[in-house]
Design a protein around this nucleic acid. Structure first.
Lengths: 212, 212, 212, 212
DNA sequence: AATGAATGAGATTTCATTCAT
DNA sequence: GATGAATGAAATCTCATTCAT
């Protein structure tokens, strides 16, 4: 469940992350490796992407990757975490705690849809690797560390009788589940996501959870 | 998009299925291999499940697997197809074209949830392998061959003004997406799916698509 | 050196060979297996011809082959020996110990060329497997058992000062070597062997060995 | 037809050959692999020479071989091409376009015999793999690219009425065929090739093709 | 720090041979 | 006698990881 797993991984940046924006060739290379990994995995699949191919694409030596990541598992893992951070960031883009609950929901929900539409590789990667053993372990560890603004929004909405009094996780399923399905249709099945379809679906999602 | 891909694969049973219940050691072995594969993949993941391990678990020689499946890809593929057939069968279990549209929806929707709850390995496998290259090809090939009762139900519901006039694929996303999310919570995150939660979610899904 | 190895393998038929012409289903099957083996090897190469394929082509069970041949090596071996016998037989076809030495040489030499032209599979098989370890051992064992009419012809020709006084094996090389080369050209390189080319070459070979 | 296929492969040396004499560990390893392959194949036969054995003999890891050759077929192929180059080089050793045609023929012909006598493994390998599918393709591709000095020599000899007016390929068969046969006797059958026998055979070959 | 050649464990797959039917 | 399913040893090949340069 990505929505959930995204929310909970809104953890404080570690040392590495702090240096993230510095113009630091070491971190540039780290980012480069992650980008090449994402691109190659979305092109060739996980099986078809050996470390040597990532190195070649990145224009570096294979051994160099091991200066940034302990092993292939950690590389995938870090990529997963980085993408989750980006998703959260995108979803909260321009989000203000004002307006009606419906308006705020629409903002968050559509932000996510548009982010995924603009980043299909990230979407596919997250969906594909959700079940990988290392990812789920990680997720669980981080699970109760953070309560993100989005979780807060749901809780507040329920309290304010704007949303049905459903279990938090049921709400997440009702709102995030359709996003995944719509995007898979969009990406895989050529069931194009027009602005109209997005708006209709957003409304329907709200109908599912809004207080009657 | 599994809901969809499941629907369209409601093809007539092939020879194999007919002979299925015969006490036929050859078919027993085929089934045995598929079962061991499913179990091992759900335990060890796809990467952690070499052919040799499947053979060992099944108590047969590794080469024997190649008498039943041309290669590992075909084995996974056949497993995927078999599970899809079972899911469809389960969803249509006791389904009758009578009662209100809401009642009929509840029947289909809950059938699917319960099937997945009772078959978590199958659920995980289907979700995990949706992106595998062979699967998407398969899906597309079968895509327009069959119009299942479920698709018919959606179309009829719209015509009868029981459901909103949304694109068919939007409806599917709104109804199937939450199932996937709920089940992932159930299986991965220990967010248990009680009968209450299921009923609440079913109602909310209906709220999302029902004609207002 | 096939010419040589052919000559010396003109051994008395063993029990099996005696029954060869009987209408004996066991022997028919043996012959069938050998024929299919030869055909498949010439089509698919030795590597591409597993026992199971031979069995399939012959329309019999794989296990059955093991009733006729102890193992694959023996099968190839027997095929080799059978073909050698046929070649000898063909070369001596209509051969009479009369006429000039040149005439008798022409008869033998052309018989062999024509036989190979009509049996390219046999030719290729013999050439291909000359080096197989089992074959060379065999050849050596049989080597000094038989003095064939052809060897006799060479010896007599030398004695009669019709041929140069060259070592027997030199004569064989001078006469058989060009046959192999010509046939490889014919089969591989589309350097067609016309009657003219054959006659010219036969004459040239005779020029090589005839007494001056 | 090797004589021919040798002649036509007298291509300009590639990069590899240039760097050949440099003390370059990478090329040393490539050469090492080829040498071990040739030795093992001549000892154990093609079937009896798995990659792992080559690696062991070369004292390197099995995977290393795949850094130099894409697969086993390419390894054999490269070995074939390398040997062909060496043969051509040997045959033209000290060859000058002067003297009588007979003298020049003797030089070329004996050079080849002596090279093969000194390199029996190379001889056997070339003879053994002439029929391999990849080799014949190769040969054909290169077929019309090069007109070697040897072909020129034959053509010129015919024009000068030093040789009979036979088709070029017939001449090749008459001269190369006996070489193969003689060497097989020498190597397989212990029919030793003395200088006398070589000289006699060379003369006889010349008798076969010389203008009368 | 960066490289990429080398490694070798391990994966997939083939196939000669056996043996229960 | 015939069969062909089953076997499993062995072959080819891949690739994550190491380490000398």
């Amino acid at each position: 469940m990505v929505f959930y797993s995204i929310l909970i991984s809104f953890a404080p940046r570690n040392e590495r992350s702090f240096r993230f924006k510095m113009i630091d060739s070491k971190l540039d290379k780290r980012t480069l490796i992650l980008e090449c990994t994402l691109n190659l995995i979305s092109e060739q699949g996980f099986h078809g992407t050996p470390i040597s191919m990532i190195a070649q694409r990145a224009g570096i030596g294979a051994g160099t990757i091991y200066r940034y990541f302990a092993n292939k598992e950690e590389l995938i893992n870090e990529l997963f975490k980085d993408i989750k951070r980006d998703i959260i960031k995108a979803m909260l883009n321009n989000y203000r705690e004002e307006g009606t609950y419906e308006e705020r929901f629409m903002h968050l929900w559509k932000n996510m849809v548009y982010y995924f539409m603009e980043h299909p590789k990230e979407f596919q990667f997250i969906e594909q690797h959700r079940y990988a053993p290392y990812v789920s372990n990680l997720t669980r560890e981080e699970s109760f560390m953070i309560l993100s603004p989005i979780m807060m929004f749901f809780i507040e909405s329920k309290r304010a009788k704007a949303m049905k009094d459903l279990p938090l996780y049921t709400i997440i399923a009702l709102l995030y589940g359709p996003i995944v399905s719509l995007l898979k249709q969009h990406i895989d099945n050529n069931q194009n996501l027009s602005t109209d379809r997005i708006n209709q679906a957003a409304e329907a999602c709200w109908d599912a959870v809004k207080f009657k």
